[in-house]
Design a protein around this nucleic acid. Structure first.
Lengths: 229, 229
DNA sequence: GCAAAAGTGTTTTGTCTACACCCATGA
DNA sequence: TCATGGGTGTAGACAAAACACTTTTGC
């Protein structure tokens, strides 16, 4: 009976598009692909795909991410549903955008090549198809807002990292400079960083201590929220 | 060509569900309806409906809101897309949730009756169908976060209101108490309130000044953001 | 004149910001 | 020994929080 009433309504193609953020130690990057599908074949695009009926929308996003990067257990969050009528000239497609944070050097390079994927400077993206630039813009704003209140920045860094790298990450995200002393004081005060007895020696003679984060406190603060910026 | 490739993919029913917030001077309310559709007919539900192919998702949300309340130009924002496989036992329906802020006494009561809609205490909702309680929970959190940084609270108040009403609104949203002096100082410092030479005399003998807000400064701060709580 | 809500300042506390020098090491 | 990036503390400004009494007026 319910199904009968449901049958009278319009059905839509649903797609998922992923804004995949990375940090290469210097700047923020986004992973984009050369589109393989008509229309707009060969143009730059976010990586995406159609939702299948046997998966949830979240699962679709995860599938697309795993297919492209080979990585599982990635930090991912839904961004927004884009539902304008003519956002895709190829047909009426409603797209749910997600953003993901990945450790750039953990991704499978070969896989990226296979998909014609490329890391590009987040703040100087080429034109992308459809409304994808708008999606990136929104994702960037959301990321900035998010990292100010939640300690998720670590998702973009290697397992062990120096305070300078962490600072560099935040500066890259906000495209601004922060005071080194104030920043490190704040971040250490949160009590989520654990200093290792090991130094990174490539970028300086003195060497900078590596830190890892304390998973327990991190998980707690991820929900509670913090004030970092 | 593009269309041909698109044709191979699954299609979905898309619905919109609206969390409609109101404030009656004492507490936060949500507008819920007795569901007219199978399945779960007669149970409480958010007001919603299916997206039509000739409208955008945003337009669908607006249509549903206008149909129910008779009000246009309502403050509304997309909340989240809910896309679990079995969220709706009646079929695979992906729902995009929106939340709206309305002036409770401006809504068309007759229209509400027609749709079996009712204002209920936001913080003590009855069980709703499907994942609607989860939607409300998320909307509540989003609202709290939003009003802390954006002066949208006014959308819930009558055109002219007293400082006590405004305070009461914020206390209702956060389910807590704020210091009257600190609160009024902050809100007045924003410079978005204009005092009228008119007093509300029902709730006190002395009478409390009415305020309205300055649309220009309000619009500006709505984008810039503020620090209110 | 009294009950009931409105309106109003100050002090204290804590937080954020600005700012500059010494340290350790490899070359 | 010197060049390079790493690491650290303090003083002042500002914002937030705590706090209580006087005013108005209808009854």
């Amino acid at each position: 009976m319910g199904r009968i009433e449901y049958r009278n309504h319009d059905r839509f193609l649903l797609s998922v598009d992923c804004i995949i953020f990375g940090f290469d130690g210097k700047g923020m990057k986004a992973l984009i692909v050369k589109r393989a599908l008509e229309p707009e074949t060969g143009k730059w695009s976010l990586s995406g795909g159609f939702v299948k009926k046997e998966e949830s929308v979240d699962q679709a996003a995860e599938r697309i991410l795993v297919t492209l990067t080979g990585l599982e257990k990635i930090y991912m969050e839904q961004l927004h549903c884009f539902g304008d009528i003519s956002r895709d000239p190829g047909g009426r497609v409603v797209s749910i955008a997600y953003y993901a944070l990945i450790k750039i050097d953990a991704s499978n390079e070969q896989l990226l090549d296979t998909h014609n994927a490329q890391w590009v400077d987040l703040h100087h993206l080429p034109p992308l198809i459809f409304d994808h630039n708008q999606m990136v813009k929104m994702a960037k704003e959301r990321l900035q807002q998010k990292v100010a209140n939640h300690p998720i920045g670590f998702e973009l860094l290697p397992h062990k990292f120096t305070l300078q790298q962490l600072l560099g990450l935040y500066e890259a995200i906000y495209e601004t400079n922060f005071d080194k002393r104030n920043f490190t004081r704040k971040i250490l005060a949160l009590g989520i960083l654990q200093r290792l007895n090991e130094k990174e020696r490539e970028s300086s003679k003195k060497g900078a201590f590596y830190y890892v984060f304390d998973k327990k406190k991190y998980k707690q603060l991820e929900h509670e929220g913090i004030k970092l910026i």
